[in-house]
Simulated scan of single mutants.
Amino acid sequence: MRALAGQFLRFGVVGTIAFVIDAGVLWLAMGAGVDPYLARVISFVPAFAANFLLNRAWTFAQKREQRPHGQAARYLAVQLAGMAMNYAVFAAIVTFAGEGRVVALAAVVAGSIAAMGFNFLGARHLVFRPLA
């Protein structure tokens, strides 16, 4: 149980780093006049990359495959499902609360929290599963 708690804590640290990247890109894109819904899609890409690389190197390092392509593909599938949940929460908040950058940042927080458990379980059991 202690190992699981440590792994979840590392996952949270990595998620926080990815969140900062996600929110920063969103903030910059919206500041440049990009629609918040499109800006959110754009901000997913660098956040996903950082999230995968850091989780692979640190959170789930003992379960790393030699060739990362399979893990990256599985991670993308899990993250896209998680992103769908995240984006649904984000879009609902922005739709009902307004399209300002502060509202959008709050919506990113809410969406990230909503998808965190799903993303952790998917990463742990589908992506970085024990090596055979």
Rank of each mutant, 00 (worst) to 15 (best):
F11H: 07
A61T: 11
N51D: 02
L105Y: 08
F11W: 05
G100W: 05
A29S: 15
Q71W: 00
E65G: 02
Y37R: 08
V127W: 00
V103R: 01
F8M: 10
G122D: 07
A97C: 14
R124K: 13
Q66C: 13
N55S: 07
V34F: 11
A91E: 02
M30R: 10
F96S: 06
P46K: 14
L9N: 03
R64G: 03
G12P: 00
A77Y: 08
P68W: 00
D35R: 08
M1S: 09
V14I: 12
G70S: 12
L26P: 09
G82R: 00
S112C: 09
G100Y: 05
A61D: 13
E65V: 04
F11C: 11
F44L: 10
R129D: 05
A84M: 03
I21Q: 10
A81L: 02
L26I: 14
S43I: 13
P130I: 11
P36A: 13
V108A: 15
A32Y: 13
I93S: 11
A132W: 02
L121A: 15
A107E: 08
G6I: 04
V94Y: 00
F118H: 08
P68F: 03
T59P: 03
S112T: 15
F8L: 09
T95I: 05
K63A: 12
N51A: 09
Q62P: 11
G98K: 05
I17T: 13
L9D: 02
Q7K: 10
A110C: 15
L76C: 03
N119L: 03
N55T: 06
G70D: 14
D22G: 15
S43R: 02
A49E: 05
G98E: 03
G111R: 00
A92T: 13
A57W: 11
R101I: 08
V78E: 15
A39V: 05
S43N: 10
V14Y: 04
R124H: 08
A23V: 13
D35K: 04
L80A: 07
W58T: 14
E65R: 01
V109K: 04
W58M: 09
F128Q: 02
G12H: 03
R101N: 11
V103A: 04
G15T: 00
P46C: 15
L126V: 13
Y87N: 00
V13M: 12
L38F: 11
A5Y: 07
G111C: 11
Y37I: 06
M85A: 10
A49D: 01
A49W: 04
H125I: 07
P36H: 07
R56I: 12
N55C: 00
G98W: 11
A110V: 12
A72N: 01
V34Q: 06
A50G: 14
N119S: 14
A115R: 06
A73H: 04
A5M: 07
L131T: 13
N86R: 05
S112G: 11
